[in-house]
């Protein structure tokens, strides 16, 4: 596999800093002592068996889930229970979900302009121009006036990416963006994500697309039972995994 393109530079500026973070669901310890520093421009792929806490980890970053111990700071803003801080972080961090979560009662264009108009207070006309720009980028400007229910899964996920980009986020989180898609549509979504990575977006992706991980990630994190078990550059991670658990996981998912 070729080395990542040269423009995908990682700066030394910290984008996300997670220190000693713990989370429980009731008495169940889902995340255990997570320490993770993400630098601006990094593309991190998080993988692991189901129930290992990888989705929960990235959902903690924009406070969709509450953590009980430790600290998370995003772009210099410390995540606390203060709603103002949470809304600020959320407007800087874009997120794509497994089930897209587009707003079915709004058109594609309205989906994309909603947050810029109401949160960023962008004038409607300007918000629409930005939205069309990003819809062109994900290659579906002709669907702008349709409703989400009329689009295919792959198209919906690309709209969801465009919707997040319209907020001009500094960081993008992807929560298994291709898991609900047919194989034919996975590629179109991955292409969009690769394009985004090449433009230098800081990305955290929970995904099982190991081809994607090899191609764009600069770091792969393996989680199991709520802990970070192993992290490394993609090449050594795939070719020479250290932990037994990682070896087993990789042999199962790359086995056929």
């Amino acid at each position: 596999m070729a080395e990542a393109p040269t423009q995908m530079k990682v700066s030394s500026e910290v984008a996300i800093d997670i220190q000693g973070m713990n989370k429980w669901y009731g008495s169940f310890h889902v995340l255990r002592d997570i320490n993770l520093t993400v630098y601006r421009g990094e593309r991190i792929v998080i993988c692991g068996p189901s129930g290992s806490g990888k989705s929960t980890l990235i959902r903690c970053i924009n406070a969709l889930e509450e953590h009980q111990q430790g600290s998370i700071s995003v772009d210099g803003t410390m995540l606390s229970s203060d709603l103002k801080n949470i809304d600020k972080i959320r407007s800087e961090v874009g997120m794509c979900f497994q089930h897209f979560n587009l707003f079915p009662h709004l058109t594609i264009l309205e989906n994309c302009t909603l947050a810029p108009i109401w949160v960023r207070k962008t004038p409607k006309k300007q918000a629409e121009e930005t939205a069309m720009h990003f819809l062109e980028k994900v290659k579906i400007p002709d669907q702008a006036n349709k409703y989400p229910g009329q689009l295919s899964g792959g198209q919906q996920q690309r709209v969801a990416i465009a919707r997040s980009l319209c907020m001009k986020p500094k960081i993008m989180l992807f929560d298994e963006p291709t898991s609900a898609l047919d194989p034919e549509m996975i590629k179109e979504v991955l292409d969009t994500m690769i394009q985004l990575a090449e433009e230098g977006m800081t990305m955290l992706c929970v995904t099982h697309e190991m081809g994607f991980a090899r191609q764009v990630a600069n770091r792969v994190i393996f989680m199991d039972q709520g802990q970070i078990v192993e992290q490394n550059k993609p090449e050594p991670f795939f070719n020479n995994p250290q932990s037994e658990r990682t070896k087993l996981f990789l042999s199962q998912i790359l086995g056929h």
């Binding site: 924009n62 979900f97 707003f103 919707r163 997040s164």
Partner: peptide
């Protein structure tokens, strides 16, 4: 679906 609430939250809407 809960995802609608989460999508709204993740876009920074109050």
């Amino acid at each position: 679906p809960k995802g609608q609430y989460e999508a709204g939250d993740s876009l920074g809407l109050d």
